[in-house]
């Protein structure tokens, strides 16, 4: 599923309850990471739940896996991975996350300024894009 598919799907959902339920469904699709990644090293700071994010770089493209102990946050991770996976460092830097979350209809619910982990995750992805 691409981010455009996700945007289409979210457009069909009218109220926040349906949107949150769909987010929870998406989060449930995240695959459990190998146990070795559930460590402090891979934790994303600044979230109100535990969030782990692990990068991999292949042919100059980035691929991330991630997880959280909170269900809605897992849904956010699913969206974030859909946005960023397969992008180059340059493409990652050009992503307008605010715009995408507005198009998803989620900005008023899960704006990056709130401490729900979204901004910390995107900062971490930018960090990896810069150093790897």
């Amino acid at each position: 599923m691409t981010i455009e598919d996700l945007i289409e799907n979210f457009e069909l959902l009218e109220d926040w309850e349906d949107k949150y339920r769909y987010l929870i469904d998406l989060g449930a699709k995240l695959e459990h990471m190998p146990e070795k990644y559930y460590t402090e090293d891979w934790k994303v700071r600044g979230c109100q739940s535990q969030v782990w994010l692990v990068p991999k770089k292949e042919d100059n493209k980035f691929y991330f896996v991630g997880d959280s102990d909170a269900a809605i946050v897992k849904g956010i991770i699913y969206i974030v991975l859909t946005i960023f996976n397969g992008l180059t460092a340059e493409e990652i830097k050009n992503v307008d996350i605010n715009n995408i979350f507005t198009r998803l209809g989620l900005n008023e619910h899960l704006s990056p300024s709130r401490r729900n982990g979204l901004s910390s995750m995107t900062e971490k992805i930018l960090y990896y894009a810069n150093i790897l």
Partner: peptide
């Protein structure tokens, strides 16, 4: 059965302000 962060997302929508963490 519910993580405090998940609960807080729903409570916020219901107008309930509390703190988690």
């Amino acid at each position: 059965s519910v993580h405090p962060q998940d609960m807080a997302f729903i409570l916020d929508k219901e107008g309930v302000a509390l703190r988690i963490g």
